[in-house]
Every structure is written in C-alpha cells, then in structure tokens.
Design a protein around this nucleic acid. Sequence first.
RNA 1: GCCUUUGUAGCUCAGGGGUAGAGCACUUCCUUGGUAAGGAAGAGGUCAGGGGUUCAAUUCCCCUCAAAGGCUCCA
Length: 647
Amino acid sequence: MKIDVTLPDGSVRQYEQGATAMDVARSISEGLARNVLAAKVDGEVRDAHRPLPGNCTLQLLTWNDPEGKATMWHSSAHLMAEALESLYPGVKFGIGPPIEHGFYYDVDLGDRVITDKDFPAIEARMKELAAKKNVYVRTEVSKPDAIKYFTGKGDEYKLELIDGLNDGEITFYRQGDFVDLCRGPHIPDTSAIKASKVLSIAGAYWRGDETRKQLTRIYGITFPKQKELEEFLTMIEEAKKRDHRKLGKELDLFTFSEKVGAGLPLWLPKGAALRQRLIDFMKAAQEKDGYVPVITPHIGGKQLYITSGHWEKYGKDSFRPITTPHEGEEFLLKPMNCPHHCEIYASRPRSYKDLPLRLAEFGTVYRYEQSGELHGLTRVRGFTQDDAHLFCRPDQVKEEFMKVIDLVLKVIKALELNDFEAQVSLRDKADRSKYIGSEENWEKAEQAIIDAAKEKGLPTQVEYGEAAFYGPKLDFMIKDALGRKWQLGTIQVDYNLPERFELEYVGSDNQKHRPVMIHRAPFGSLERFVAVLIEHHAGRFPLWLTPEQALLLPISDKYLGACANVVRSLKDSDIRASVDERNEKIGRKIRDAELARVPFMLVVGEKEAEQGTVSVREHGQGDLGTMTPAAFAEMVNDRVREQLGGL
RNA sequence: GCCUUUGUAGCUCAGGGGUAGAGCACUUCCUUGGUAAGGAAGAGGUCAGGGGUUCAAUUCCCCUCAAAGGCUCCA
C-alpha cells in the first residue's frame, strides 16, 4: 500500500504506508531534511517524526515559517525547563508556550529566588543539553498514569492541567531526562537549537488569576544560528533607542515630576506646541465633517456617573469622589466625556432634523490606573481625548460610522502611520454579565460595526471580550518600536447610554424616538498618540508637525543679522525656524541640529549673506545646495501640503 | 495592586562604612570658523525620602516614594 502526499506546489508523491514527514523531506533533499522543524499535515502542525496518517497534503515547516518558529520555541521552552530542573532540583512547572518573540516558562521555585545573574548558567546548561541531540519523544499516556507520574514528582500545577483533560487525549514529550505534559508538536531533536538567551524574569499569576499563586515567568528566545541571536539583540537595542520616554526627554517634549505625581505628564513648550498642532489639525478636519465644539468641566456630580453606569462599573477602582465642605455633595473627576455630552444633548428637545448632532471636545479625563501599569505617555492617569459623540437616527448609524472611519484613515495617512490593523472588539461570548444593555441592541451595534469595516475594506481582526461595557468598538491598533500593539483611534456604537439618559428626538411621525450614539476618538488619547508617533518615526516627525522645521546656522556671529532676516521672512511664510546663536563652529552646529532631528539646516556665511540665499542641508540627507529663502519656503510648504492631503 | 530589578550632578554612568568622581550639558573667557564634537577656566550633589544598626551610613538593614521589565487591569 502506498500513500499519496500532495506538496504545496501541487505535486503528488507516493510513499510507503507509515512514512513520516521527515522521510518525505529526505526524499527531496538532505539539506531540507536538516532544516525541517515540523510538518503541516492537512492543515494541522505535527511532529516531523510522526507517521503520516494516509493520503494527505503536506507542508514541511522550517525556521522560515511562523509555525516552524513557534514549534522550535515551544521545544526550546522544554529545553529551558530541562536546564532549570537540572540546576534547581524540585522546581515545579506551570505552562511554557511559544510567544511572538521566543517563549516563556512559568515555574515555582519554592523559596528560591532567581535573578538575571543566574541567566548565564541557565543559558550554558541549555547549550550543553541541546548539544546532546536529544530526540523529542512523544508518548500517549492514560490519565491515571499521567496523574501517577506528576503526583510522584509533586507538581500540583501539571496535575491541575491534567485534571482538565480527557483520558485518551493526554500525551507526554520527553527529551533527555525531562518529561513534560504536552500536546506538542515538537521539533525532531534538540540539535536545531544553536543559540539560547534567557531574556527576563517576571511574576505571573498561575492561570492569569490574581487571587492565585504568583509563579516566576522566565522569558527566553532561541535561534538556529548564533548570528541570528546577535541580530535579534541588536534589534532590541535599536528599538530601545526609539523609546518615547528616552526621546521625549532628549527632544524636550515632556517630563514627569514626583511631586506632581506618577502618571501625570507635564508637557514642555516643544511638546505642547506639537500637541497643539495635532489639535489644530483635528479641529480643521472635524469642522469639515460637521462637528461642533463643546466644552465641559473636569468634574461632574456622582449622580451623572450613576446614571451612565460608570459608577457601578468602575466606582470602586476609581479616584475617590471630591466632596464639598458643607453640603456633602460628591463630584468625580471625569473619567469620560460622554455623560457630560449626553446632558448637552438633553438640554433641549431635539428634532430628527437636528440629527446627526456631532459634539466634539478635546476633553481631559482622569482615570485611576494601578501603579504598576503606568508607562511613559502610553498609560497615564490624566490624558486628553480628541473625543466626540455623534447622536444620530438609527438609519444614519452606518453612514456616520463610515465617515468616522474615513477621518481615522486621514489621520493615519497624514501622520504616516502605515502599519496598522483594525480590531473589531466584540463581547465576551462566555460572560455577558460584564456588559449593560439588551441583547437586541448589542446585536444591532455589533453588526453595524462588522458591516462598516467590511464595506471599507479594512484589514480587520475580530477580538471577543474586548468591547467596552456599553458597546462594541472598532479599534485602530498601531505597533510601537518594540512591536507592542497600542490602541489609538477608536469608534464605538452605543445604544445603551441614550437609554440610560433617556435621550429622545421627535421623528417625522411626530413620535418620540431614541437616538443612537457613536463615541469616537481618532487619536484616542493625545498622550498615547504622541508616544506612538515618537516611536514610529524615531523622533523624526512629519514636516508639518515637527516642533522646529528649520534651524539657521551662521558660519560666524558676523552673520547673525542675516540669519535673523531669513527667520523673519520664513515666519511670514508660516515656517517654524530659529537661529543657533551659539559661539560654535559650523560643524558643531550641524552635528547638534542633526541629533535634534531638525528637518532642515540653513547655513549662512559670507557668500549667502551677500547673495541673500541660504545653503540648505536636509536631516539625514545632506547638502541640497543654495536657494533663496522664498524658494526654500515654497519647497517646505509644498511638502507640508502633500502630507496633509489637502487639509 | 503583585513579582523581580533599579534610584549617586540637568543627562549617561563609575565608586564605595571615615561626609563624593568622569564624560556630556551649563556659565565665563579665548577663538570668528564652510557641512556631524575648537580650547581653557568655573560652577553644580542632604548620594530619592524617612527610620534603624554603628564612634561614624551615600555605602549595611527596614519602610515609603518613583522608575524599568512582566502579571492582573484598562470606561
């Protein structure tokens, strides 16, 4: 009996019954066989050593395939566990999965504490064990035998995992002396793991439950070549250079003060100007789209949030209410702008002809974030949203939603944030108790978002359990320098707040109807948005946004006057420029301007002063030659116009 | 909030039981220079804050605060 194996290129080859993916690889080439890490059989990733089930499609997975990497890292987690067990006898193991960059293993070291000083020893042991070329051996185990094994080992975590599995579907994997409960698959043997690095340690609750024991999570990464490890480490170093906390300091954009408080950013003049430019940009765009600005105070009566549902949902984990000295009134720092905006809507009767009503506010909100969660500008306790609430008729929801998507895309384009993904955030399928509002309204809202995203052809990803408590969201996710995804823009359809605030409008039928609300913030929070901008552009902001577009560099102080004239004429053309008046040589001034990421350096010496020109040098590009200030201004303004796409 | 680590000049960091050091930045002076660091001098620190051990603490111990990497959380 032969079996037919269909390869990715469509070719079909015949093999003996019981042949493995590895046999197939060998029949193609020895080189391929050496590189095979796992196999995808009829769409399922399996050990390359397992016999093929019969006629099947087969894709051989190597380091170049994401699943190949994941398999290697999963096997590496086992290798690290083996190293840990030999170094620290009695260690107990939780779970050890592959992740985006590498893998981790959660371990219980008892009273022992390990620190980064222990990493080299672990790495060395991993290298030693990998060199043994131990084969990853898969065995099917009965549930009683599995329980017996880990009872003998005293590993209560594995026993708890086994408890959740059915007899007949339990497998162990063994390499060398280390046996682990594992579904697999794994790489053929440990020899593929040529370079290992323990990256960091962290506490992690068992099964992600903060009421349970905290285990030690050890992160690591491995590569088939030492060189790739080195490249990875270089990449991490490069990413650190783009860190917005570092660049924010270097570029004088923002700072923090212990006295002001953690998570409360202070915007320095350059940062404030940049932020103001973002606000101006958004205001102009919103005005075109028919938004009307409103302004509301920073606090609101407690009853406002009882009505909105925020008090019940977040009251316990919020900043405590502010109280008045005599009347005993309670106010909350506003964590959201929407309740205030609902009250503006309710301030007078509304007709269907008034809708959609688009209330916009750059509203600063305050939320208590756990101290360990604060992070630069991306996670703060006080921040400003480019918030707006669109009150519309049900028949207007889809069109309004799509217009908001266009606005977000405009922002993404103007700020050159190309690497984004739209995330459709829906309810947790399992736990509806986390949300307010009727099943019917949720269905309608979720469908509206799915339809709109589809119609716009956005690259989308559906996530369950990520919805806000009052409605589903469309979130725009952007990656930062370290590859972490951040939610920036968000659009949310909400049928619930209008109900809670009993908002109404009179329809053409002269009956009262309930409007639908769309919450939206294209930047999200200005703080987080600026952080992601800094990292994405490594501090080299788009020309229209950058704090200083041009810096005049006089060859000597004889030309300070000529420089001042140029600055004046550039300012008339709306170009932000100033003069480096320091008594330094030109090389020094250029170096400092390059490091400060000033887009254009304008050198003025004897020749330029006489001719009334400037010698233009572009950041990262070099000398562009001399031109008149007017020609330079035109070039800058042309580029700005192009970036803003007609806004 | 929890785990691990960290906190010395504006910044980056060295040091270490006997009341502190470098480079850069800053100030002043010299230099007036042509596309990525000109020279000299000077000033600048309750060694995060509080408590303890000690004849003596910036150094050792404890607590608090802040920061880093994670976990949980994120309207």
